[in-house]
Computed example of a mutant assay.
Amino acid sequence: MTEEHVDSLIPYDDVVQEALRAVVGRVLGDVARDGLPGDHHFYITFKTQAPGVAIPQHLHERFPDEMTIVLQHKYWDLKVEAEHFEVGLSFSQIPSHLFIPYSAITAFVDPAVDFALQFHVDAGESEPEPHEEAGNDGPTVVVEDGSNVVSVDFGRKK
C-alpha cells in the first residue's frame, strides 16, 4: 500500500505562522509596557523589502534584503500594535526609526533563555540571503543545537 500526499483545504501553515507572530507581538507589548526583564534581549531578523517595512534609506542600502536588529540596552519609543511594531535604534551613532510589520519577520531570538522562532516568509525562497547584523547594540547571536527553536516551514504551495 502506497501513501499519497493529500493537499489540505485548511491553511494550517498560515494559521500557525499568524499565531507564532502573535507571540512576538505579545512579548514586545509586554516589554513596551514594563521594560526588558532580567537578562532578556531580542534579535529580530526581518525582510527589509517586505510590504509595510519603513526604515531609513541608509539602512536599505546596507541591508537590501534582510536585517537583524537587537533590542537590549539602547532602544527607545518601542510602540507595539496589532500588525506591526516601531522602535528607535542607533546605527553608527545615527538615530533611526524603524516600522516593522510582523509579517516581515523571519526570526525572533531571545538568547538569554535559548528561545527562537523562525518564520517562512516567501515560498519562492529556499534560504535567506547571507546578511550582516545591523550591529546596533549587541553581539552576534549563536543558538546552540538542542535549544528551544521553533521552525515553521510547511513548504506552502501557491
Results as ranks from 00 to 15, higher is better:
residue 34 D to C: 03
residue 82 A to W: 00
residue 111 P to L: 08
residue 128 P to F: 05
residue 39 D to K: 08
residue 124 G to K: 14
residue 116 A to H: 01
residue 43 Y to L: 08
residue 123 A to R: 12
residue 118 Q to N: 10
residue 65 D to W: 09
residue 149 V to E: 13
residue 20 L to T: 03
residue 44 I to T: 04
residue 149 V to P: 00
residue 98 L to K: 05
residue 44 I to A: 04
residue 140 T to I: 06
residue 95 P to H: 06
residue 58 H to Q: 11
residue 98 L to F: 08
residue 39 D to A: 14
residue 101 P to R: 12
residue 88 G to I: 01
residue 85 F to R: 07
residue 16 V to G: 01
residue 80 V to K: 10
residue 96 S to C: 08
residue 149 V to S: 07
residue 145 D to T: 10
residue 60 H to C: 10
residue 18 E to S: 12
residue 14 D to R: 12
residue 116 A to K: 08
residue 118 Q to W: 06
residue 45 T to P: 01
residue 32 A to N: 02
residue 121 V to G: 03
residue 4 E to I: 10
residue 57 Q to K: 13
residue 112 A to R: 05
residue 98 L to E: 13
residue 59 L to I: 06
residue 134 A to G: 15
residue 6 V to G: 01
residue 146 G to W: 04
residue 96 S to F: 02
residue 21 R to D: 07
residue 91 F to N: 03
residue 18 E to K: 11
residue 15 V to K: 12
residue 126 S to I: 11
residue 48 T to I: 06
residue 101 P to W: 13
residue 108 F to G: 07
residue 28 L to C: 05
residue 50 A to C: 05
residue 15 V to Y: 13
residue 86 E to R: 13
residue 101 P to H: 10
residue 77 D to C: 02
residue 72 Q to S: 12
residue 82 A to C: 00
residue 69 I to E: 10
residue 8 S to T: 09
residue 137 D to F: 02
residue 59 L to V: 04
residue 80 V to M: 09
residue 144 E to A: 14
residue 153 D to A: 08
residue 51 P to W: 05
residue 156 R to Q: 10
residue 103 S to E: 15
residue 117 L to C: 08
residue 24 V to C: 09
residue 92 S to L: 04
residue 149 V to R: 12
residue 64 P to C: 13
residue 12 Y to V: 13
residue 148 N to G: 02
residue 99 F to M: 08
residue 2 T to E: 14
residue 50 A to H: 15
residue 14 D to W: 04
residue 99 F to R: 14
residue 53 V to L: 11
residue 137 D to V: 01
residue 122 D to C: 02
residue 15 V to I: 15
residue 125 E to D: 13
residue 133 E to T: 01
residue 2 T to R: 10
residue 3 E to M: 10
residue 28 L to I: 03
residue 145 D to M: 07
residue 52 G to C: 07
residue 35 G to L: 07
residue 40 H to Q: 13
residue 2 T to C: 00
residue 111 P to W: 05
residue 82 A to R: 07
residue 138 G to F: 02
residue 76 W to I: 01
residue 51 P to C: 03
residue 94 I to G: 00
residue 56 P to Q: 06
residue 94 I to F: 01
residue 87 V to Q: 05
residue 25 G to A: 04
residue 121 V to T: 14
residue 115 F to D: 09
